[in-house]
Computed example of a mutant assay.
Amino acid sequence: MAVLDLQHIRKSFGSFTAVDDVTFEVNKGEIVALLGPSGCGKTTTLRMIAGFERPDSGRIFIGGADMELRPPYERNVGLVFQDYALFPHMTVAENIAFGMKNRGTPKNEIAPRTLEVLQQVQLPGVENRRPHALSGGQQQRVALARALVTRPDIMLLDEPLSNLDAKLRLQLRREIRTILASFECTSIIVTHDQEEAMGLADRIVLMNRGRIEQIDTPARLYQSPKTLFAADFIGHANWIHGTLSKAAGDAGIVATPVGDVRVTMRQGSPEQGPVTLCIRPERLAITDGTVEPATRMQAIAESVDIVGADVRLWSRLKDGTLVQSLDKNIGRAMPQPGSEVMLGFGPDDCVVLPASDAA
Rank of each mutant, 00 (worst) to 15 (best):
R280S: 03
V352T: 10
Q267S: 09
L284Q: 00
T276F: 02
K318C: 10
V261L: 00
T276M: 01
V352S: 02
P257C: 13
M297S: 04
Q324D: 06
R266K: 11
L317K: 08
P257I: 15
A247K: 13
M342L: 10
R266Y: 02
I330A: 13
I279K: 09
L277Y: 07
R312I: 06
C350H: 07
V258S: 04
D349M: 02
L277C: 10
P270K: 04
G273F: 12
A248V: 14
C350L: 00
W314C: 14
D260E: 12
I279Q: 04
S315C: 04
M334A: 00
G268A: 11
K328T: 14
K328L: 12
P335K: 01
G252K: 15
M265L: 14
M342W: 08
L284K: 13
G249R: 14
D250C: 01
P274E: 03
C278K: 11
A333W: 11
M265S: 06
V275L: 14
T276L: 02
T276R: 06
Q324M: 04
P274T: 09
D327S: 05
A333Q: 13
V261W: 01
I279H: 03
V352E: 01
E271P: 11
M297F: 10
G320M: 11
V341D: 00
V351E: 10
R280I: 00
Q336G: 10
D349Q: 06
T243C: 07
P270M: 01
E271T: 15
T264R: 12
T243E: 13
K328E: 05
A301L: 03
A285M: 10
M342D: 08
A309Q: 12
V341P: 09
P270D: 02
V275C: 15
T321G: 01
M342S: 04
